[in-house]
Design a protein around this nucleic acid. Structure first.
Lengths: 132, 132
DNA sequence: ATATATAGGTACCCTATGGATAGTGATGAC
DNA sequence: GTCATCACTATCCATAGGGTACCTATATAT
């Protein structure tokens, strides 16, 4: 009952040259997921985002935020004070996406145990092969 | 009304060592998106998948399918005939995920024009900077 | 006066991944 | 005989992800 075929407007993410394909490429990043989820509740500063996303390096954080800003999902506001203060917030488009990405995140958290087991089984099978 | 904080089971995708974080990493791939979406309507053969996903190389297709199989999202069935015949289908877990990923795909297709415009604006601004 | 901390980055490098190309084995079609 | 099908596998290369160090400017601490 939905979008297994081509969308009504002729956009088709399966086609390499379709704009929607490049959108999918942009979304296919764990830092994009997490950044959008992190900003879902409201505006945050660079440092707050960095602390929230364990393991992200300043470079990757900046890079991710620049991409999200470029694509109109995030708004960046600079306060000309010292020390510098920069805040990020989702645009309406970003809010819209955040709902979906949060669902993915919830799904990942809910099904993590199952997938962990599946991986364990897979590597057990692999070891068995090595023995036989 | 949902998962902005830690999930009830203590899983938190923002933590690098959390299993759900690695699940998110696995999902963060355009080929994973597209493969799961492609299999949504039913089982397909390797060649059918390759033809459906424009631009995927045999290596990436195999790699993606192996990951999905390892994580219990896809079932692989080999028919010992010549020429070889291999079919892939979503498991229940995979079906479950496919609903969400299809929504992302629809979102990408619906909002592609907006994002295209945002990108155009961004590069126009960039050019302006270069001139001034 | 000097050193440190904060804040939000940039510059540089290095490895891992994505992606392109070519090859494999067994068969049937032309 | 040679070409195509089918589902891969192997090899190579370019790019992207990721780590570390450094930058500006000020307030605070010593």
């Amino acid at each position: 009952m939905d979008s297994d075929d081509v969308s009504p407007l002729g956009y088709d993410a399966f086609r390499r040259t379709c704009p929607s394909h490049t959108v999918l490429e942009m979304l296919a990043s764990k830092w994009v997921y997490l950044t959008v989820c992190a900003l879902r509740r409201g505006r945050l500063r660079n440092g707050e985002l960095a602390r929230k996303m364990e393991g992200i390096t300043p470079k990757m954080l900046t890079q991710t935020l620049r991409v999200l800003e470029r694509d109109g999902l995030v708004r960046r506001e600079v306060f000309p004070v010292i020390p510098p203060r920069v805040e990020y917030e989702l645009t309406e488009l970003g809010q819209n996406l955040a709902g979906l990405l949060s669902q993915i995140r919830s799904w990942a958290e809910e099904h993590a145990p199952e997938i962990k087991e599946a991986r364990a089984r897979a590597s057990a099978d692999h070891d068995e092969m090595a023995v036989s």
